[in-house]
Design a protein around this nucleic acid. Sequence first.
DNA 1: GTCCGATCTATTGGATCCAATAGGAGGTGA
DNA 2: TCACCTCCTATTGGATCCAATAGATCGGAC
Lengths: 213, 213
Amino acid sequence: MTVATQRVADHLRTAILGGIIGPGERVRQEDVAQQFGASRLPVREALQMLAAEGLVEHEPNKGARVPRLSMHEIDVMYRMREQLEPLALAESLPVLDAGDLRRIDQIQEEIERGVDVETFLTLDREFHLRTYSACRIDQLTTTVTRLWNATQYYRRAFMHLTGPSRRWVVNAEHRLLIDAVERRDEVDAGRFLAGHIRRTRIELRRHPEVFGG
Amino acid sequence: MTVATQRVADHLRTAILGGIIGPGERVRQEDVAQQFGASRLPVREALQMLAAEGLVEHEPNKGARVPRLSMHEIDVMYRMREQLEPLALAESLPVLDAGDLRRIDQIQEEIERGVDVETFLTLDREFHLRTYSACRIDQLTTTVTRLWNATQYYRRAFMHLTGPSRRWVVNAEHRLLIDAVERRDEVDAGRFLAGHIRRTRIELRRHPEVFGG
DNA sequence: GTCCGATCTATTGGATCCAATAGGAGGTGA
DNA sequence: TCACCTCCTATTGGATCCAATAGATCGGAC
């Protein structure tokens, strides 16, 4: 697999996260293969990887398609994040170095400058994942990343729908989180983080239209 | 992929969970392929699936091997279980039917009959996973199952080491859990469950020799 | 004697080809 | 006109073959 498979998987993942391939859409092996000038084999293996990540569903002899998720599924995934991300943060927090902290602060400054939805999504993701970056437990970081990926589409839809009116809440939460992180206070940090995720989950529940189509 | 890949993956998974292929051991594609009278292709795809589950590690051009996990990694995975399994139970609990409850009770009765280590491992696993069986959130059940699988080898080593002396604690915990489940009390059930997992984690930490070789 | 390099072999990665399955189009019967 | 059956095509699954990489072994030079 390795290099070719990885390239294809990265490309498809980016396309799905970017909303270029949306829920319900099918992914044909041949199309992707031609697009890469490669054979179908690495594409098949890449699709398997994505299936394992929950980014596509694979039905035998029918191919892969991006799954449509219900509000309840997203809700539970957010609750999983509430449970797991404080753990990842606690693992990471003691070993985050000065460069990480500086970068985290930079990202937040840029968010506060008032960016558009797509940029916000990218920065917000980088912000949080960066706080976990020193966590060396593979199963944990992998699971957390998968949860981010699988919910990305609906987070985008939600953001486009609600606009930046509540952005100040995010900023306040991020600032509290950063402060706790810099103090290496994992209890505080975990609490702010869980609250941050929970609030987002609750707000998402108020917009069932995100899951309508 | 489908049928052949699935068969190979199931077989390899069973072999790894059963301890037939242990940590550090390499898995050669050709060997497995011959063993199945199939080509290497489904084996490759099966190995990818297992890699996604964390049951093997895959290094480019070097092949797959079962990873050796440190005590700290196992400890964190147990903490992940403490966080996630109460969630899975809460999802499952309201919709568990009478047949499930009966089966859960049967399993516990058999455990109490005093079985050997291998049987205990199998029954204990079936016991817990059965309580989650009505949870329909794929990401959650998948993640929980993966955590069980990835830690199985060390659970076995621990059990063989300590013998059945503390089996009565497990039985008491299981009984309390069953009672809460039958009352559909998700708070109680979640608490007993988290405690059950936590106690096992703590006891595991007392036996670093499990991770020595 | 030891260290470095080259070749050789075992094993994996990727491409092409063939088989099998699913879904649809078209035709035929009632 | 509608239902059902058959055939056809598009697409995926699997096998075989070839290329590339890593590790080992052997040889040579210092």
